[in-house]
Amino acid sequence: MNEYTYPILFGVIVGTLARIIMLKTDYRQYPTYLHGKIIHLALGFIAAGLGSVAVPAIMEKEFTAITFLTIAASQFREVRNMERNTLTEMDGYELVPRGKTYIEGVAIAFESRNYLVIFTSLITTLSYLVWNLYIAIVVAIIAYFIVNKLMSGSTLGDIVDIEHSEVSFDGAGLYVDNIYIMNIGLPARQEEILKYGMGFILTPKSFDVRSTIANLGQRQAILHDVSVSLGVFRDSGTPALVPLIKRDLDDGRIGVFILPQDKNVEKAMKVISAVPVLENAIRMPSESKASNKEGS
């Protein structure tokens, strides 16, 4: 026991708690129970340890100890690789795959959350050592809010207007509103699609959003999330029954065609509006130099 024991212990506990809070298992069911979680809790504990130890090390003038953090960085990059590989392997067995963009988004989130843990532990240990336990507790609470803010991105409901629209056939062509989805030849399949299919039109709220929702990864993410939440009327060997999203080239609207098992319009609209906007799909054409000049 020395003067650093309690501050380090406190930092480790707060950091690990932060990781537990950030490790939410929701409709995505990922990470799955116990084993998947234990991996991330253990890594979170290590991250918390590294963050806490850094401050006393500097106070003891052990500046080289900071290089430990670089080891941590490469360690957590490995976490990102691990998540990416696992999810990509499993994606082949999903009825409606997540898609590479979604997987990359999840992997990035796992890596960045470990850095948030390091940050939390570092500042709480620092404030314990500089001031006292009570201030450290306040700092921990503030860190919790910062972490919460940083880990929540925007959702689709923020950037598009969602309308329900009937699916219809024009000959063999399947349409959602006026957006052509695909060609379905067999009358039996057409009947199934009319019976189980649902259509939605997503209208972008701004010009920037057009390119975001046009991103194929973002579209696949919508289909995956809807299929997870509402079930999907599909099996291997029925490739004609596939949820699809196509784009209206004229105005950038997208037509979402889904085959849910729970045909509840309200719920489907809620699910679509809760789909995360993928970091990798966001585009900002309005920030380009060309459009800035136009504006000024």
Binding site: L186, P187, P239
Partner: peptide
């Protein structure tokens, strides 16, 4: 034609598309 197309669709794991009333692929 529709029956054959439905069977082939299941067997070949492909989608049957109608090009016209008398032609499916």
């Amino acid at each position: 034609m529709e029956k054959v197309a439905a069977n082939l669709e299941a067997i070949l794991d492909g989608i049957s598309h109608a090009l016209s009333d008398e032609l499916y692929i």
